[in-house]
């Protein structure tokens, strides 16, 4: 089991502080009368990497979208970076500028170049001077290994490149927390690796991350905790080794046998 040992050592290199980054207490959400999230309790420490998995419709995307208020929760309390999420718009915009998010379909701005995509928010939200914002953008584009595409438009890039730009765009805001909503689900197998590599690198730098993903290899390699959700509830959470080797609930066993079975 050298593979697992490697993964374990890689993970141990990543330190977790005892400072709380995100605290979700007794959170509930409904779409109309449909109860999507039920009594969610989750505390994420700074530097933690959490992978959320579960069948479709289990509420995992909704959960992370609640963290930066893309979805409103009706009950309970979410604290991000010490700020309690409320309906106050200024408060929400401040939290969003501290929390980066990557989407399944990248959602780059097609009318702007790659560089402009990356500098837009720093210039308008952070009021960074244009020159400085461009330098930062080039730094992160180099980091995700596509600095040469800076002047192209998103439509000219492959899916994997677009997702890496989306990651760079989020990083340009210097977020303290990154949320990933199925970042590799819309990609060809060849491109999944380049995006995962970028995310692993990010994790190794100590970024606090919550990833909704079905990439179990990624979960093994970088996650501190794997959370399994079903029917709007957290069914099981554990360290990745234990989670995969020794799942407790029947629902988790069934899910794992289905996604790892082939």
């Amino acid at each position: 089991m050298t593979m697992t040992d490697d993964a374990a050592t890689a993970r141990n290199r990543l330190s977790v502080s005892d400072e709380i980054a995100i605290e979700i207490v007794n959170m509930n959400k409904w779409y109309g009368t449909f109860h999507v999230l039920r009594d969610i309790d989750l505390t994420v420490m700074r530097g933690e990497r959490i992978v959320i998995c579960g069948p479709s419709g289990s509420g995992k995307s909704t959960l992370i979208r609640c963290i930066n208020a893309l979805e409103e929760h009706q009950k309970g309390r979410i604290t991000v970076d010490g700020t309690v999420l409320s309906s106050d718009l200024k408060n929400i915009d401040r939290i969003r500028s501290e929390v980066g998010m990557c989407f399944q379909h990248f959602n780059l701005f097609p009318h702007l170049t790659i560089l402009e995509n990356c500098t837009l928010a720093p210039i308008w939200v952070r009021k960074t001077p244009k020159r400085e914002a461009e330098e930062t953008a080039m730094h992160f584009l180099t980091k995700v290994k596509i600095p040469e595409q800076a002047d192209k438009y998103p439509g000219q890039l492959s899916g994997g490149q677009q997702q890496r730009v989306a990651i760079a765009r989020s990083l340009c805001m210097k977020p303290r927390i990154m949320l990933f909503d199925e970042p590799t689900s819309a990609l060809d197998p060849e491109m999944i690796k380049e995006v995962l590599d970028t995310m692993i690198e990010l994790a190794e730098e100590g970024m606090t991350m919550i990833c909704v993903t079905h990439e179990m290899g990624f979960a093994r390699q970088v996650a501190n905790r794997v959370i399994f959700m079903d029917q709007g509830q957290i069914v099981e959470q554990n360290e990745p080794e234990e989670f995969f080797r020794n799942p407790q609930s029947d629902r988790t066993k069934l899910f794992l046998s289905q996604i790892l079975g082939h």
Binding site: L70, R96, G100, H105, F109, W124, S170, M173
Partner: peptide, 30 residues
């Protein structure tokens, strides 16, 4: 426009006026 454009603008911390002026309207007007 796909909803993702609104969400991406929101998730970057742009306020309503900025999101409309910089992201949504340039595309919608085109």
């Amino acid at each position: 426009l796909p909803r993702g454009q609104y969400e991406a603008a929101d998730s970057l911390g742009l306020d309503y006026a900025q999101a409309m002026r910089l992201v949504i309207l340039p595309q919608a007007l085109k």
